[in-house]
Design a protein around this nucleic acid. Structure first.
Lengths: 216, 216
DNA sequence: GTTTTTCTGTAGCGACCACTAGAGAAATAT
DNA sequence: ATATTTCTCTAGTGGTCGCTACAGAAAAAC
């Protein structure tokens, strides 16, 4: 009888009394979004398997029963974390694809932003989606992240195809291969960021990678 | 205390009596090299953390005490596995660097061979060194593999510098960035192989990556 | 043969894993 | 006030983790 997501989230702090749809019983004593952010950082830094529920309750500063009441179980919490991560930290790629006028400019911006995102100070380096998956003994989690990576490559390919159709790239451009190359660059840069590469090193990498593109 | 590597390895089966330096007591009933190969496959497929000692004893078909007597502990066994992996499956890069006449040809061959190696049938896809590390709760193991990856990039850079010195590449070539790019390609291809990319897809990727190089 | 050395199988160690029952505390509604 | 609802805390569940003590089996040396 797990209760699932029952309440209406209480977007703000929700401490003011007399609120329209305030639930009946004792309100929870921690901020759900803040706790979720702490869980995100823990998973991002250590990966799914290596982050124990003890780690999570310590990082989120709540008891285990509170965690299970608010988020279901460890895997549900992680899936919610991946969703928040995609919206908050992993959206630069989609933004570049949507906003830049040409595919080449979009990919160039994507690679440059990845260089910055993956080495940003104050948070774990690299990409949570790329790193939290490997070494995972729970197949469903592994599949979840694998699907996301492949979907990103498919999105890249679609954007490149559109560029070809628009005449900004030669008609014989191998869109699938170009997409895979960009995907590999992203994944390789993520790995190297974990291994200590600096932002400058990754930017040099991104610049070089762009020279494979046909000149506009 | 712990006996470490005491015996002289008994290269062959060692079953023939009257051998010169046969040890005194009961000989072990399994072939050490075969068991090590089984452990290699298990670690390669699942990663370090996700491969339990139970998994290992089942794959190697020996009891836990035999495993500990022959290999020390789980981490020692893994370190030996990494060593064997490097010699047996991870040497194509070093070979390409050593045997090809130019740096460009070496990297091109390295990328093409990676496409084949990382998707070879009958064994796990991708690179053990890249994948067995992430999500690892044992810092020493993580560091061991990180050092190996960075050493590979350093080797690439050295080879490229030599190519510049030999006049096969322009004097202003950014050797470090070229090396990082190739390293990222390798790591990205490894990741994509894990995610289902075919050999043909990776080969197309490698071919494209080579166009960044100045034409000889 | 006996003695010595080493391996193998059973069985289990303490520690940690993800997870939860149950009781009391704290807020609501009436 | 009382009754109701929900959260939080303590404590502990069975399960698996990496690892090992111990006894018996199997080979060597003598």
């Amino acid at each position: 009888m797990h209760s699932m997501v029952s309440r209406a989230e209480n977007e703000g702090s929700g401490a003011h009394p007399g609120s329209p749809s305030r639930p009946r019983g004792r309100p929870r004593s921690f901020d759900r979004a803040t706790a979720l952010e702490k869980a995100l950082m823990a998973f991002w830094e250590q990966g799914y398997e290596a982050t124990s529920v003890s780690d999570l309750t310590r990082a989120m500063d709540i008891g285990a029963p509170s965690l299970y009441a608010a988020f279901g179980d460890k895997r549900s919490l992680f899936e919610e974390v991946v969703q928040v991560y995609g919206a908050r930290y992993g959206s630069f790629g989609d933004r570049a694809l949507a906003e830049e006028p040409t595919a080449r400019a979009a990919v160039e911006r994507m690679l440059r932003e990845a260089a910055a995102e993956y080495t940003a100070p104050g948070r774990p380096h690299g990409c949570l989606v790329v790193h939290a998956a490997t070494n995972c003994s729970t197949p469903e989690v592994e599949q979840l992240l694998r699907d996301r990576r492949n979907a990103n490559i498919a999105a890249l390919e679609n954007r490149i195809r559109a560029g070809v159709a628009a005449g900004e790239l030669p008609a014989d451009t191998d869109a699938a291969a170009l997409a895979r190359h960009a995907g590999a660059m992203i994944q390789g840069m993520s790995q190297q960021a974990r291994d200590g590469a600096s932002r400058e090193q990754l930017e040099a990498l991104a610049e070089i990678a762009m020279t494979i593109w046909p000149r506009s």
